[in-house]
Design a protein around this nucleic acid. Sequence first.
RNA 1: GCCUAAGUGGCGGAAUAGGUAGACGCACAGGACUUAAAAUCCUGCGGGUGUUAAAACCCGUGCCGGUUCAAGUCCGGCCUUAGGCACCA
Length: 802
Amino acid sequence: MNMLEIEKKWQNYWDTHHTFEVKNNDTKPPYYVLVEFPYPSGSGLHVGHVRSYTAQDAIARMKRMQGYNVLYPMGWDAFGAPAEQYAIKNHIHPKEAVQENIKTFKQQMKNLGFSFDWTREFSTTDPEYYKWTQWQFLQFYKHNMAYKATISVNWCPNCKTVLSNEDAAGGVCERCGNAVEQKEKSQWMLKMASYAEDLLKGLDDTNFANKVKLGQINWIGKSKGVEVDIDIVGGGKFSIFTTCIETIYGITFFVIAPDGKLIKELLPRVKNKEEVLKYIEETKKKSNMARTELNKGKSGCELIGIKALHPITKEEVPVFLGDFVLGEYGTGAVMAVPSHDQRDFEYAIAHNLKMKQVIAGKDTTNEAYEKQDYLNVGAKLINSAEFTGLTVEEAKEKITAKLVKEGLARVVNNYKMRDWIFSRQRFWGEPIPMIYCKDCGWVPMAEKDLPLLLPDVAEYLPTDDGESPLAKITDWVNTTCPKCGKPAKRETDTMPNWAGSSWYFLRFMDAHNDQEFASMDAMKYWNRVDWYNGGMEHTARHLLYARFWVQFLYNIGLVPHKEMIWTRVSHGMVLGTNNEKMSKSKGNVINPDDIIKEYGADTLRVYESFMGDYQADVPWSTESLKGCKRFIDKVIRLKDKIGNLTGYQKDLEPLIHKSIKKVEYDTLHLGYNTAISTLMILTNALQNKEAISKEEYHVLLTLLNPYAPHITEELNEQIGYPPLCESSWPKYDEAKTIDETKIIGVQVNGKLRGEVAINTNEEEKSVREKVFNIENIQKYLAGKEVVKFIYIPNKIVNIIVK
RNA sequence: GCCUAAGUGGCGGAAUAGGUAGACGCACAGGACUUAAAAUCCUGCGGGUGUUAAAACCCGUGCCGGUUCAAGUCCGGCCUUAGGCACCA
């Protein structure tokens, strides 16, 4: 039989025996292994998918053999712009394109022998699934967590859609790379910012890798500071937020955001209205990126006629407009202390403004003396009335206390994370189940009427004015108000593709439930996701959205834990042989189908496990892949060495027990490459024997099975054992993992001068005797006095001489 | 600029608690088998001094310092690369 036939044979066996299908009421302990479900793109499975699916498959298969009821599910995240773009280009319904792609993906996964429970498969585009996505949106709405707001949003003129801040990172559209513009639009929002503190705290109840946690923390972006009220001369006031209250005596002007609310209030009192309005208009045209780039020169203008009072000294201070202040962040106004903030410093230079140094320790004529330099170095205040002479740290506390006591300020936490813009002007997404009635306003659809299906239409191009394609389908849009029964209109925006992926891992726990999104019993049985693997690029946003979604469901009593994901790990990319990201245009794409055809699925799986540090990017190497093929061939040939022996040969016993221990450990600690190398070492050792026993061969096959499931099943059957997928993982005996003898290094004054063979745990006295008999060691001891003899049992000897 | 991760042979990488640096694999070189090739097997493989061959010695984990009997690993200061964030107040 050739490789492909063997692979087919066992894939069929697993299918017909329902080997990987799991029940929710099993008495075995549950174990839930999850990989990010893919977006089924037209280009098929990427070798990068193979890397992480194989790694998690190895965990799943090993855990099964160890007696767990392992849930390893797969599904499809199929809403979103690429499918819609593809459909528009090829004049087919996105649904058809998606179905086609799913078929390809699924076949490729089957060809690789991944042990998914296919009975739980679903796509986010299935009405039976998005019914519950819509239902959950209604819960957000009913718990006052969803609202509509007219806001300045990121608008991509090319994709004709609104983007979240996250999607528009860097001021360019994530999808098409076009510059993002600002546009006023009415959008559905989810109150994610109100969960900032909970999302931060929740991290303590997870086992995420440290860098993943840090990613979350950075996105949430908590900063502690003081919000200070500022009176405007002639009436009115505004607030500023600062993290550097110690520099308050250094204020020489205020700057407010041109896109904020405050300027609208102040405008009637401004004397240079024309200049100000012109500047506001200019700002609107700039995307965040342009705003960043163009403002090297610190643009802005003074609000003539407006003066504000310094909160403590009550001196009159000028107020400026500047687009480096963002309307949406903090209070949309800042105190400017040019001597202690480089950005303020540059603005002051550009507009010829006064400066006042209030912290001693550096000359501030040419640049500001900033907090990263003056904090924690004992710097003291100057020019600060009664606070002069205090250290910066003391002043921070005392100034805050004074302002708070006088009712002028509040200690607040500020978060970068904002509410989630939840509307998209697209066709290919979950319709938002809301109805607008002239009399009743926004009314949620009745839950019993869900799902609100996407209409089957021929035309799904977005309109030029930014309305969703759904707006054109009048018989879908026109409906009646669920409250008063009068004619009303449906919301035509759809949900972002982050929506469906925010809770899919819950659905896998109870994929066919038509009464609820997943039953509490099912979720309690599976408990939570034990392993969640995905790309680093999703560890910030997707994970944050998913955690927010789950925490909300928890707060309304619908899921058993506030955090439903325990361990999150991320894998490195598989790069082209030239060390660059694989892409069609670079011509460095490796297609897994070709590799399977030529070398077999097991070779591909072993190679991708072995190729390098799992968390780091690795370039593809076909030469290295061939080495893995050689390894598998070697394992196959080893069968011919089986002789008339039974049990483990004495001298192999420690290696076998060590190998079990190491493969087991490495498989659960991202050490897939060292697990494979351990198996190579074991294989080499067996090969060096005249003959081996069936038991020895069987243990090798069992250990290799999670990585190379087809060939190991086949060889295992040939030597007369029951299928490995129904067998147990071997147990190692800790006592037997220890070698009887060991060779350790001998150093003199910390330099390696020889080695010595010792018995494990040999007494120092006898080791000492051996060591002093080594000729080369004697050379170094001659005529010297031994000051100290260091023996670290089973590790090293170091002799210190004088 | 800030945050995070990383920097080890020709290459991918290993070293799980500070204890013989370079496991395992690739590439390469030499040899065996073969009419030949492929496959397979054996040997070598960080740099250098040295030797008939060994032995032995010196240098070596981005750079400079430090702690320690002992540092790829810990500490301080730099440099470089990748990813993320960024006029964030």
